[in-house]
């Protein structure tokens, strides 16, 4: 028996005490996994969209699924949200099986789907009210909560406007507000900021940070590495329905990439030929159609070496390694196509 489950038994026996002191219960339950996925597979007819992935998410953790288009991120999210039936493998969400306990699981979840599906026939505030009612909340409860969340999403002044004319960022914030109506234990966000401008993304990230600080478990998918780095404590990199690597952003970068990256460009027709002549520089290289990436712990030194050999790049850049590089290393492909 693990230490945490023994602790939990103790907590059960002194339940009366724990009830009066919920903070103790919080403490005891902290390392309880809220998602336990073992070898889950999703097939659409013969096509395998998710090919046996396993992971756990702890309560209060912020967990990211990073991968390119078609990797199976949304499919995985849908299985967790109990709106897609897995083909095989075992999956436990909040201690229940999504294949059979859909409504019970969903009552505890907040879901922000990849595509906005706000109710166009209703106004902004009404979207929140009706959504709360779908969870069986009382009229008084949904009214208070809707006003709080409009405030949270900075949409109070748009409360009575129609949904259609809202900007992309506003719609996304409204969708997030909506997903919080039932005060969920866990929030599933499928590409929360895709298609938004940098300012709108930062506003959204800020809102998500606040939720994280309040202890809401976040599970998000993205194909933006900066987003994954910003928001996730832990990441799995998925490609073609399988997990390629797992760890914190810093761990992944340390494990799969170098400290620095030198990017040099010679123009698309010359990149390949120059690459052959500087192949010995750095620990490793990636030759992309538009540029050459040279991985090492000192980019400036490598750049000096290249120029010394007479290969003056049209542009060059030294930067720190990112998850993008990790991804390139793992799959040989770029994240954002």
């Amino acid at each position: 028996m693990s230490f945490s489950s023994r602790l939990r038994n103790v907590a059960m026996t002194i339940g009366f005490f724990a009830v009066e002191h919920p903070s103790l219960l919080d403490y005891v339950f902290v390392s309880e996994p809220v998602i336990r996925a073992k070898n889950i597979v999703k097939k659409y007819d013969e096509f395998v969209a998710v090919d046996g992935i396993s992971f756990e998410v702890q309560r209060g953790e912020s967990f990211g699924l990073l991968g390119p288009n078609g990797a199976g991120k949304s499919t995985t999210m849908k299985m967790i949200a109990a709106v897609s039936t897995r083909t095989s493998g075992s999956l436990e969400v909040l201690g229940m099986d999504p294949n059979t306990d859909g409504p019970a699981i969903r009552s505890q979840l907040g879901v922000v789907p990849q595509e906005d599906n706000l109710d166009q026939e209703l106004r902004v505030r009404e979207n929140l009210l009706t959504y709360g009612r779908f969870f069986g909340m009382s009229r008084a409860e949904v009214a208070t909560r809707a006003d709080e969340l409009l405030e949270f999403a900075q949409l109070t002044d748009r409360a009575n406007s129609k949904v259609e004319p809202l900007s992309g960022g506003m719609k996304r914030r409204l969708t997030i507000a909506r997903s919080l109506m039932n005060d969920p234990q866990m929030l599933l966000l499928d590409e929360p900021t895709t298609g938004l401008d940098p300012q709108a993304r930062h506003i959204l990230w800020d809102r998500l940070f606040r939720l994280k600080e309040r202890g809401t478990t976040l599970v998000l998918t993205t194909h933006y590495m900066d987003e994954a780095e910003q928001l996730s404590d832990r990441i799995v990199v998925v490609d073609k329905g399988a997990i390629m690597a797992e760890g914190s952003p810093a761990q992944l970068i340390r494990q799969y990439s170098s400290r620095e990256v030198l990017e040099v460009r010679y123009g698309s027709d010359k990149n390949a030929s120059v690459a052959k002549k500087i192949a010995d520089i750095g620990e490793r290289q990636e030759i992309l159609p538009d540029r050459i990436l040279i991985y090492s712990d000192n980019g400036e030194r490598d750049l000096a070496e290249i120029t010394k050999r007479g290969h003056h790049p049209t542009t060059s850049l030294v930067r720190r390694s990112s998850l993008e590089d990790v991804f390139l290393r793992l799959t040989g492909r770029s994240l954002v196509e």
Partner: peptide
Amino acid sequence: MSATVQSSAAIAPSRR
């Protein structure tokens, strides 16, 4: 608001 253990505001539907 501590969101660690408390269940959501939704009425938990019967699992029957």
